[in-house]
Amino acid sequence: MTNRDDALRNTTWFTSSHSNDQGGQCVQAARITGAMAIRDSKNPHGPAFIFTTPAWTHFINALTQN
Rank of each mutant, 00 (worst) to 15 (best):
T11H: 14
S17A: 09
A7S: 10
Q25T: 08
G24N: 14
T11L: 12
F59M: 08
S19N: 00
F49R: 03
I38V: 14
D6F: 05
I60D: 04
W13R: 05
S19I: 01
L63C: 15
A48F: 01
D5F: 07
W56H: 12
T64G: 15
W13D: 08
N3Y: 02
P54W: 02
R4C: 01
A29L: 15
R4P: 12
Q25P: 08
P47S: 09
T15I: 04
T57W: 04
S16I: 02
P54T: 10
T2K: 12
N3M: 00
C26R: 03
S16D: 04
A7F: 02
T57P: 08
T53V: 04
F14A: 10
C26A: 04
S16C: 01
F14M: 14
I50D: 05
A35E: 10
M36P: 09
G24E: 15
S19L: 00
R9C: 14
T57N: 11
I38T: 03
P44H: 06
T52E: 12
H45L: 08
H18E: 02
A7L: 15
T53S: 12
A55S: 13
S16G: 01
F49W: 04
T33R: 13
F49T: 06
A62G: 14
L63Q: 15
G23V: 08
S19A: 00
H18M: 05
Q65V: 15
N43T: 00
D6Y: 00
N61A: 14
T52F: 02
G46N: 04
N20E: 12
A35Q: 04
D40Y: 04
N66C: 15
S17I: 09
T53M: 07
N20Q: 07
A48Q: 05
S17T: 11
T11R: 14
F49L: 09
T11S: 14
N61G: 13
A30H: 12
W56F: 09
P47H: 01
Q25M: 13
D21S: 09
N10A: 10
S19T: 02
N10D: 15
T52H: 03
R31M: 12
I50S: 09
T57F: 06
D6A: 07
T11M: 13
S17C: 04
S17N: 07
H58Y: 12
F51I: 08
T64A: 13
I60Q: 10
T33G: 13
N61V: 14
C26V: 08
N10H: 15
G24V: 11
L8I: 09
R9I: 06
S16Q: 01
D6Q: 10
P47C: 01
D5P: 13
A48R: 03
S41L: 05
R4S: 10
F14K: 08
A62P: 15
H45V: 06
N20I: 06
D21E: 07
W13F: 06
I50N: 11
Q25H: 07
T52P: 07
T53G: 10
G34F: 05
D40G: 10
W13Q: 05
A55N: 09
A62M: 14
K42S: 01
T52R: 05
P47G: 05
A55W: 00
H18F: 06
A62I: 15
W13V: 03
Q65L: 15
A37I: 09
N20R: 06
V27D: 03
G23Y: 07
D5S: 09
S17E: 06
I38W: 00
A48N: 01
I38P: 02
